[in-house]
């Protein structure tokens, strides 16, 4: 079994990064804030990425279950 648990895969790193920067961190709301349009659309793309990562990880995990 691979002992390297720190993930180096580009997909997961980008997914985790986008999830954080689009939905976490300090947020400012109110009338004085300039809004950026379409951030929701970018996050929708992140959710789609999550689905593909899940499928990939599901395949890996499925293989592990068969092996035990």
């Amino acid at each position: 079994m691979d002992n390297n648990v720190i993930d180096q895969s580009k997909d997961i790193t980008i997914l985790e990064l986008l999830d954080r920067v689009l939905t976490k961190g300090v947020i400012i709301t109110g009338d004085v804030v300039i809004s950026v349009a379409d951030i929701d659309l970018v996050y929708l793309g992140v959710k789609l990425m999550l689905s593909s990562v899940e499928t990939m990880e599901q395949l890996k995990a499925g293989k592990a279950i068969k092996e035990i």
Binding site: V21, L22, T23, G25, V26, I27, I28, V32, I34, V36
Partner: peptide, 18 residues
């Protein structure tokens, strides 16, 4: 403290007040 993407204000004065 990281800001969420899209955090913008009109001017430096408003940021200072914030």
């Amino acid at each position: 403290l990281p800001m969420r993407y899209g955090s913008m204000l009109e001017s430096a004065e408003l940021i200072q007040k914030m």
